[in-house]
Amino acid sequence: MADVPCEQNRLAIAFCHPDLGLGGAERLVVDAACELASHGNSVDVFTAHHDRNRCFSETVGGPFSVTVSGSWFPRSIVNRLHAFCAYVRCILIAAYIAWTAFRQYDVVFVDQVSAAVPVLRLLTSSKVLFYCHFPDQLLAKRRSRLHSIYRTVLDAVEESTTGQAHQLLVNRVFLETFGRLKKRGLVPSVFYPALSLDPDLVHFLNGKHVFLSINRFERKKSLGLAVRAFGALQGKCAEQAEVSHSVLVLAGGFDKRLAENREHFCELQELVQQLGLQDKVRLVASFSDAQRSALLAVACAVLYTPENEHFGIVPLEAMAAGRPVVACDSGGPKETVVNGITGHLCPPQATAFAAAMARLADPDTSAEMGKQARLHVQKTFSRTAFGNKLNGVVQRLAKT
């Protein structure tokens, strides 16, 4: 992408995001809103949920406003139809932007749920930018024939509405998934999320033998893989001094409103007990930004266990802190982790992860990979580069 134009207009930009909580997708939205505001644009964020006690600090008193709309529609129906409800909630947000927001936006930034795109195209004259973190259809498992039909409809809606945006920003997996858009000759821009680096904490308590997992307490994140891999590491390499003094920390987002978060947290505790790792494994729920930075500072490696995950901000955070990553050889990590240089990409098996962890338990190996990881992130994924590129995109989009 070209650099930011020298002469720019002060644009009015709105964000349409389903749930402004804590997570990689939310981090991207917050970073994008902050960066666009820092370039002199007026920015407003619209969302269906925003808990001021469980959010990124920039969303409270930051350089942009946050407005909640559509929260009256449920997040699920009898604990099902989550995707459908997310579609409806984002459509309600889009309608609110069109009818209730008393201003005209030059650009509306939509992410995660593309169903909002045609509503904005129909009801506003704004240019609509859609950021596709990862095609939703690749995350959904077909549990039954009826569910497969349900997903087929939603998948068709996702592809159709995604193609209606004026501008698409995507990860590389996009075109392989949306074949019909590829046949139409649609060429979106590959655009990576950003990361705020905190160099002062990189060296804080460096050299501790802590294996760290950062992810929400959801079953699809495969956190049990980290526990089983750590157990396998203890069993096969117990004589290795660094391994015998190692621990595993599972830290992640935890929403007490969600039954799955509560249930899976208990399931992981039971797994730890079954493997006799009570003194070696700790679960940390809903940790603060300061705790996150401190944990990254003392880790010798970060484990990222989701399979076929979307881009994933955690591997970038880990590498930015000078920590190598052990991740599944699928999805987003294949774009961010340089196998054998900034970390290891492995099959989703406990023995494979344990073998990689054994290598990274060596302080020299971990330090060298961590150094390469940080240089890789600085070169490719800095927030400044992200902000300049994104501002350039919206400036050009507004002029078309």
Rank of each mutant, 00 (worst) to 15 (best):
L81D: 07
V117S: 03
Q164V: 12
V173I: 13
C90V: 01
F73G: 00
A115W: 09
A98K: 12
A101F: 02
R89T: 00
V153T: 07
A165T: 08
V88P: 01
I91V: 04
F178E: 05
R143D: 10
R103N: 09
S126Y: 04
W72E: 02
A101D: 03
F130E: 05
A140E: 13
S125F: 08
R180H: 14
Q167M: 13
S144V: 07
R184P: 06
L181E: 04
V187Q: 15
I149M: 14
R145V: 13
T152W: 12
R142F: 00
A95Q: 14
T161R: 03
H82R: 12
R180Y: 13
Y87H: 10
Y131E: 02
V88D: 00
P135T: 06
S160W: 14
L123W: 01
L92H: 03
E159F: 05
Y131H: 04
L146F: 12
R80T: 05
F102D: 15
Q167G: 08
V173W: 09
V187I: 14
L129V: 08
H147T: 05
V78N: 14
L120G: 02
A156R: 15
R89I: 00
Y192I: 01
L81W: 12
R143Y: 10
V113K: 01
I93M: 00
L81V: 04
S160N: 11
V117R: 01
R145L: 11
T162L: 08
L81N: 09
P188V: 06
L154G: 01
F134Q: 10
P74K: 01
Y131G: 01
P135W: 07
P135L: 03
F109M: 11
L81F: 15
T162S: 08
V110Y: 00
S71V: 01
P74I: 00
A98H: 10
Y150D: 08
V187N: 15
L175I: 07
Y131Q: 02
A95G: 14
L154W: 08
S189T: 15
G185K: 02
F109R: 03
R121M: 04
K183A: 15
F73I: 00
F102A: 14
V110G: 02
V190D: 06
L129P: 05
V119N: 01
V78Q: 12
H166Y: 09
V119D: 02
Q112E: 04
A83K: 05
V173S: 15
F130P: 00
H133R: 07
F84G: 04
S71K: 04
Q104G: 12
Q104L: 12
K183T: 13
R80P: 01
F109E: 10
A94Q: 05
F130Q: 08
L175H: 09
V108M: 07
V190P: 09
A115H: 12
Q167I: 06
P188W: 02
E176L: 12
D155S: 15
G70H: 00
L186G: 08
V187H: 15
L81C: 13
S69I: 01
E176I: 04
F134Y: 14
V68Q: 03
Y87T: 04
W99G: 05
V68K: 02
A98Y: 04
A98I: 09
C85R: 03
L154S: 02
T161W: 06
V117L: 07
L169K: 04
R143K: 13
Y150F: 13
T161P: 03
R151P: 02
N171K: 11
A140W: 11
Q137L: 14
L154F: 07
K141Y: 11
R184Q: 15
